[in-house]
Design a protein around this nucleic acid. Structure first.
Lengths: 388, 388
DNA sequence: GCCAAATAATTCAGGCAATAAACAAATCCG
DNA sequence: CGGATTTGTTTATTGCCTGAATTATTTGGC
């Protein structure tokens, strides 16, 4: 069988694209392998010949994307292998986050290590969007200087925003920040002189969960803050929707005739399982009861997600992560009752691996992921960047 | 900018894959263009050079996938162009459907024309799965003979089933047929000696809506029969879920404390908007009221879908299609209330283009789509098939 | 201690597919 | 009728992968 290219077809392929694709294949295979891997192992893992892999690896090493490291443990006779691993001094991603009461920036390298991390606590509501973003750009600039002092060059930046973000990087609405129609990408790009991506915080937090997972995982990441957002990872890729507004699980209806929501509808999930709802319910009765009720509502909404999307894993993040021991029971009870296929295959429910840093970390991951998925572009860009 | 291959990377690419990809690109571009297109226009549409396009087209014509037709209307000076169009005598797809009270088969060619259509009305519940499938195989065999009498060769078959179908073609459950764990693919493949795909009827019906749509549409297709199923088309591809069980919208919760559903949960959409629910409600009050109530429930469930997936179009099919004039009002009212982004961008609601044939037609489409997306495989197969 | 077996990595000729540029074909228009 | 124009083909060149042969480096048996 001839290996097939992905199904959707809308751009021509030429020899250079073949190279680009195979460079990405080699690099991602090295990055995703737990231990250093030899060229020979890489060849058999990818299906390319050893000759080709050698050439690709040479190019990736020359481009500071891979390095040779100590060989993996020996296994019998033969010439020892040279181990390959992502280069710690290769391009880094700048992960940025803005929220109601803090600004944050981090620097993550190709190995996934966080090299620097800066957080600035300050209420962002009094200042306007331009000021907030310029404060963030300053923080990002400091993070970048720290990175450059280590000899690290940033491939780009990504920003996590608690709001609706369009595909063009414009923030349409960010209720808690009081933002409306803010071209965050343009503003940051101008100040940083770097490619900048902007995305919803739940989407980026979901991406951060993708780090450890092998294969092509599909899961819903639910982030419980003041609002409730979800990031959908389907077949290993973040699904953003037609306009980038996917994952608004907070306004899924739990009780169509329930209390009025600030969105104008009635009985939204947020009213039952949002941070404020949990707190006020805890004050009225007990924390245990409040969490049971919230878990039940979450379970109803998540059952709808699983019925619709057939994902096999649910990740609870943000404010929900520490509450998982209390929430898991009621959520699972509802899933068992309402997911049509529950008896055929279970749904895994787990807490997010990262805590409050998930969105910022996912933002940085998004940058290095873009380098991993198109190393040829980075290599070309790197040279022209140095020339300028 | 170098054209980029799709993001996910897990197979090596070699020269033959380049050819395969560009053959698919050329073929799908011709198929998707409304009028016959010239080689030169094809070159500028795809971004390939005219020389390359000529070579690709020669191969596609030799393989009975394209034909030269009358040139499109002239536009000024220059050598007249030769028109290209999908070949009507190329490979055909066999679309099959099994349901409670009928079996059906159709033959669809590369141009999308239905060449033959056979329906056999008979209650399938009394017979067991093996018998039903062998009856279907017989019907499919007749359709295939009709096609072969026209000199048409079947590239494969696809079967639409009202139930949960795994990725391996096994039917896990089909409640209305009384099926459980039926390896429909193996049984049909053995009798037809053709590659057979099996999928849920709503999924395939959704595919049939993809025919006219250009670009990379994203929509939900909702099919209202005895149960309610949905097919999700995201970015131009059918999303099947991890195990192939996506789209079970019928058991999304409308009222968590509502009446008991046969699935074991309470207040599922099916109890408010299923065929039986509408009929009994109509008997109790009036048809108009029954449809308003059903529309309201559908609107609540669809608002959840739109909030989660950010699709911009909803297609009502199956039993809902003729009811759209009555359902649209209440559905839209709920969408307006509950979809968070409704004010930013509207959601289009429309009736399915095809009626009862949608699933069978979508099945045939799936087959010819697979040829269009990998013509190289068909060309290789075709030769070896003739040799044997 | 040395040689055979084994495994890793590189080198080199060959082939395939795309590109670019020149050429041939067929029409319009003045 | 001849130049301009557009379509489609031919030819030389280039890039990248493959496969086989070659070099490099170790283990293990005698």
């Amino acid at each position: 069988m001839t290996p097939r290219l992905p199904a959707f077809t809308d751009a021509p392929v030429r020899q250079s694209s073949v190279r680009a694709h195979n460079l990405a294949l080699a690099l991602t295979t090295v990055v995703n392998s737990a231990n250093p891997i030899s060229r020979a192992a890489l060849a058999s893992a990818t299906g390319l010949t050893r000759a080709t892999v050698s050439a690709l690896v040479d190019e990736l090493i020359a481009g500071d994307l891979l390095t040779e490291v100590e060989p993996p443990p020996r296994t019998g006779a033969g010439r020892p292998a040279a181990g390959l691993a992502p280069a710690p001094d290769g391009p880094v991603g700048l992960g940025l986050e803005i929220n109601v009461d803090y600004l944050a920036a981090c620097v993550v390298d190709l190995t996934g290590a966080v090299r620097h991390r800066l957080v600035s606590h300050a209420d962002q509501r009094p200042v306007d969007a331009a000021q907030a973003l310029s404060g963030l750009a300053a923080l990002a600039g400091r993070a970048r200087e720290l990175a450059e002092a280590d000899g690290l060059r940033a491939a780009g930046a990504a920003l996590a925003v608690p709001g609706l973000v369009g595909a063009d990087g414009r923030v349409r609405v960010a209720p808690n920040l009081g933002w409306q129609d803010v071209d965050a990408r343009a503003l940051l790009q101008a100040e940083l002189d770097l490619p900048v991506a902007v995305d919803n915080e739940a989407n980026l937090a979901a991406l951060s969960e993708l780090r450890a997972a092998g294969g092509r995982p599909s899961f819903v990441y639910v982030s419980g803050e003041i609002g409730i957002g979800a990031g959908l990872v389907l077949d290993g890729t973040l699904y953003r929707g037609v306009r980038g507004w996917s994952g608004e699980i907070g306004h899924v209806s739990i009780d169509p005739d329930g209390p009025a929501c600030r969105c104008g509808a009635h009985g939204c999930l947020e009213l039952f399982a949002g941070q404020e709802a949990i707190q006020s319910a805890a004050a009225r009765s007990s924390t245990a009861r409040a969490l049971t009720a919230a878990g039940r509502a979450l379970g109803i909404a998540l059952a709808a997600v699983v019925n619709l999307l057939d994902v096999d894993t649910i990740v609870l993040g943000g404010g929900y992560a520490p509450l998982v021991p209390d929430l898991a029971g009621p959520i699972e009870a509802e899933l068992r009752r309402r997911v049509l296929t529950f008896d055929l295959a279970p749904v895994e429910l787990r807490a997010a691996a990262l805590g409050a840093d998930a969105a910022m970390r996912g933002a940085a991951d998004a940058v290095i992921r873009s380098v991993q998925q198109d190393p040829a572009a980075w290599l070309a860009n790197r040279l022209s960047g140095r020339a300028s």
